[in-house]
Design a protein around this nucleic acid. Structure first.
Length: 244
RNA sequence: AUCCGUAUCUGAAU
């Protein structure tokens, strides 16, 4: 189950979807598909490549073969729909999973939250997170998602307030939290402050990653201080972060 | 044995 599922995933990452599907069919013949693990990988790939129709078909095929969609299957479809801009269908999949008695976990809610913030409104996202807090169902991704929503809509006050709230709820910032803030500061034209936040991040024991550096370099390029850009580039190399 | 191995948040490209 694992060996051939991961092989199928590798084929997908190579863009060889037909080979991946062949691999899956072969697994079915050999009775190696006992649950959602293998089909979830293919459904996810189809969603990421915006082939929602294909993903739906594969999902339908699971039922035909008596395979029960699991929480990951539902999460994959919810995220796929919402990233494709179809929030209604995402919510519909969510109701389906409730109907069949599957318990949504924090990943499901985070996917919905991201969809709400990006496709509907941050206010809708705020309402959801309030409910999640009462239900004690949240993690660092939940907060990062809403934080990014506030940043995208330029809501500085709410963003800052959310950071305080995060601490209050006992959620530590991670590298993504910092990357969101650094990107936001850059977008506000506050490059120097963005670099300071990177220093805070390091002081907090977190390691800037490729996204951190690319964010800073991209935004500094718009101003054209070549010296500083090269310095930052060399800095990332020295610290062992590979540019992509 | 334990751990890891499929879904959710950030940059760039389109």
């Amino acid at each position: 189950k694992f060996t051939y599922s991961i092989l199928a995933k590798g084929l997908c990452m190579n863009g060889q979807i037909n080979e991946a599907l062949k691999c899956y069919k072969w697994m079915l013949e050999k009775d190696l598909v006992e649950d959602g693990f293998a089909p979830n990988i293919l459904i996810d790939y189809l969603c990421r490549t915006k082939n929602i129709a294909g993903a739906k078909q594969l999902l339908g095929n699971m039922f035909v073969r008596g395979l029960i969609p699991d929480t990951v299957t539902y999460g994959t479809m919810i995220d796929g729909y919402s990233k494709a801009g179809n929030l209604d269908s995402a919510v519909h999949v969510y109701s389906d999973m409730i109907k069949v008695g599957k318990n949504p976990n924090v990943v499901i809610y985070n996917a919905l939250l991201d969809g709400l913030c990006k496709r509907l409104s941050v206010d809708a996202g705020k309402s959801l997170i309030d409910a999640l807090k009462s239900a004690d169902c949240f993690d660092v991704v939940t907060f990062n998602t809403l934080l990014n929503g506030y940043c995208i809509s330029g809501n500085v006050d709410e963003a800052l307030h959310l950071l305080v709230d995060m601490r209050k709820e006992g959620i530590s910032f991670n590298h993504v939290t910092y990357n969101i803030l650094i990107n936001f500061l850059c977008k506000l034209g506050l490059i120097q402050q963005a670099k300071e936040v990177m220093e805070i991040m390091i002081a907090e024991g977190l390691t800037p990653d490729c996204v951190t550096y690319t964010t800073l370099i991209t935004n500094m390029s718009k101003k054209g201080d070549a010296e500083e850009i090269i310095e930052l580039h060399d800095c990332m190399i020295v610290r062992g972060v590979m540019p992509d």
